[in-house]
């Protein structure tokens, strides 16, 4: 089985977000960039499927500026075979989910694949839309929020998270799957893996090389931080029971939330 994994590079979850000078993005200085955590599940799943079926290649696709190469190398070090880097700083700066999906689709359509693995959402924009849009543009089915996949022939039996439980579906390949936590435990890159990754092929393309017109359908006008939260009141009391009673009283009479 040949698989494609779409990976996005995002600020590490520890990052303290600061708004940049023109007020439309974040300050990137000092940010530690990592592969979006849900995409790690995608890479791991592709590798496990390849190992199980003992056949096929895993190709990573990432759209973003120069820096994205470090996330690509991480995926290659985990065990992916090759990568496509759509390197286009200008297009990336204004891309929304729709434009991103169009660009990724243009890069993927000429690859050989039975499945495309993605994250359920990138943890920077938290949009969670690219997988469904990508499948639509490629004209193949999409299953989002996947927690289990079993492939047999040209079919996959998939468990996905739904509200309050889960659903088990059967889907005909090729298909797009977006990974939810619980799908697997992503491996760490080994030292030999890291060495080998340096020699694996990375095909670098620009958006115009792909011949796609990916006009965004939305524009970020401004970014702001939520109002700072001040530390509130510590409920005092001689023992836990007294504090519990004072807390209930405060929530009922003062905050009026219970």
């Amino acid at each position: 089985m040949n698989t494609v994994v779409c990976i996005k590079q995002v600020p590490d979850t520890e990052t303290l977000i600061k708004v940049n000078g023109d007020g439309t993005g974040i300050v990137e200085d000092g940010v530690k960039w990592v592969m979006s955590p849900y995409d790690e599940y995608g890479v791991e799943e592709a590798l496990q499927q390849k190992e199980k079926l003992k056949a096929g290649k895993v190709t990573l696709v990432s759209f973003g500026p120069d820096r994205v190469i470090s996330a690509i190398r991480t995926g290659l070090a985990m065990g992916a075979d090759m990568a496509v880097h759509i390197k286009d700083e200008a297009a990336y700066a204004k891309a929304d989910s729709f434009a991103t999906a169009g660009i990724l689709a243009a890069a993927i359509k000429d690859l050989e694949y039975d499945a495309v693995f993605m994250g359920k959402q990138a943890i920077d924009d938290d949009s969670g839309q690219v997988p469904a849009m990508l499948g639509e543009i490629l004209g193949i089915p999409v299953v989002t929020q996947v927690i289990k996949i079993e492939v047999s022939g040209d079919k996959a039996t998939v468990t996905r998270e739904v509200e309050g439980g889960h659903a088990i579906l059967e889907v005909t390949l090729p298909a797009v799957f977006s990974a939810q936590k619980g799908l697997n435990e992503p491996r760490y890159a080994s030292l030999p893996g890291i060495m080998k990754a340096k020699k694996k092929p990375v095909d670098v393309k620009s958006v115009s090389d792909l011949g796609v017109d990916a006009a965004p359908m939305s524009v970020v006008k401004s970014m702001s931080l939520p109002p700072a939260r001040e530390a509130g009141k510590i409920i005092e009391g001689d023992d836990a029971e007294t504090k519990a009673a004072a807390l209930a009283k405060a929530l009922h009479e003062e905050a009026k939330v219970i």
């Binding site: 990052t15 439309t24 929304d96 943890i123 938290d126 524009v219 970020v220 006008k221 939520p226």
Partner: peptide
């Protein structure tokens, strides 16, 4: 965005 660490107007 960023899980609520910031907001954007789009």
């Amino acid at each position: 965005v960023y899980a609520g660490k910031a907001y954007v107007n789009v």
